[in-house]
Design a protein around this nucleic acid. Structure first.
Lengths: 139, 139
DNA sequence: AATACTTTTGCAACAAAGTTGCATTCTTAA
DNA sequence: TTAAGAATGCAACTTTGTTGCAAAAGTATT
C-alpha cells in the first residue's frame, strides 16, 4: 500500500520525489475530488505552493489524475481509475457528482455518461457530465 | 432590437443602467459563451471591473444568464433562452460544446441532456454536460 | 419636473490564485 | 560515484476576485 504511489509514478515514467509521493498519498486517501486548495492546506507546510501547481499539472499530463469542471472557479482533481492510467490516453466516461450540502465532489464510477448525438459537423473528443444535488451521506 | 436589453432588465425587475444595457448588448451580439475576461476586454474602458463582476452576479441570480462549467478555471456565461427567463427558475437542459480549435463555447440548444440514473440515495438538482471537440466552423 | 429614497457604480485597498526565471537540490542512469 | 537532467524552492510578479464606502444614477411619487 505504501508503495502504490511509487508504482504509479514509475509506470508514468516520472521520477519519484517526496512531494509527488505525498500528493499521490493524499489522493489515494481521499474519498472525493480535491481542489488545489485542498491539497495546499494538507501540505503547504511541507511543500511549496508552486510545487503543488506543477505536480498537479504533471499528473494531469500523464493521465494520473483527471480534472472535473465546475462553475465555481475551483477545478477539482481525482485519481484516474486503472483503465484510465494504463491506456495512457485519457477518456473519462463516468459521471461526477457534487453535493450541495457537504460540498464534496465524487466520481460515480458505475454511472456511465449516456451517448449524445451532436449536430452535423461537430466532432466529439471528450465529454464531461457533472450532476449537482444531495449525496447519499447527506440525505 | 435596441430595446431588447431594456426589456430583459425590466422583466427581471432590475433598474436599467448603462453598464447593464451594455453588457447585455455584448451577450446579445455574441455567438458564443463569454468569460468575465471577454467582457472586460470589451468594456473595461467604460465600466469598472468590479461593476462587471457584480453585474454578472446579478444576471446569474435573476436567471438572465447561466454559467457553463469548465476545466480551465474560466467560468463562461451565456444568455438563457426565453423559456429559461420566463420560468424564472433556471433549469438548463442543453449540452454545451467547447471547440478545441477556436476555443469558443456554444450552447447546443437543440441537443438535450439525456437522462441519467444515479445510484440510490443521490438526488439530482442540476445537471451539466460539456463536450469538447471540433466545432462545425473549424471542421 | 422636482423630490426623496433606493440602488448601482467607481475607487481604493486588499486577498487570493496562478505564473515565471533562476539558482539549488534531488533523481536517475551509467 | 558521478555526471547529466529533472524537480524544487524562492522571489517577484501578474491576474483574478472581494469588500467597504462615498458619490452618482435610477425609480417612484407627488
Amino acid at each position: 500500500m505504501q508503495k502504490q504511489g511509487e508504482d504509479i509514478l514509475k509506470n508514468s515514467a516520472l521520477s519519484v520525489t517526496a512531494s509527488r509521493k505525498r500528493i499521490l498519498e493524499i489522493f489515494l486517501a481521499a474519498d472525493n475530488a480535491l481542489a488545489h486548495q485542498d491539497i495546499e492546506t494538507k501540505c503547504a507546510d511541507q511543500y511549496d505552493r508552486v510545487t503543488i501547481y506543477r505536480t498537479l499539472q504533471t499528473f494531469l499530463e500523464k493521465g494520473i489524475i483527471h480534472n472535473i469542471p465546475s462553475t465555481d472557479n475551483m477545478v477539482r482533481y481525482a485519481l484516474c481509475n486503472d483503465a484510465c492510467i494504463t491506456t495512457g490516453h485519457h477518456h473519462d466516461n463516468h459521471v461526477h457528482f457534487r453535493c450541495d450540502q457537504c460540498g464534496k465532489t465524487v466520481c460515480l464510477d458505475d454511472v456511465n455518461i449516456p451517448p449524445v448525438n451532436l449536430p452535423r459537423g461537430y466532432t466529439m473528443k471528450e465529454i464531461n457530465m457533472v450532476v449537482n444535488g444531495i449525496c447519499k451521506s447527506c440525505k
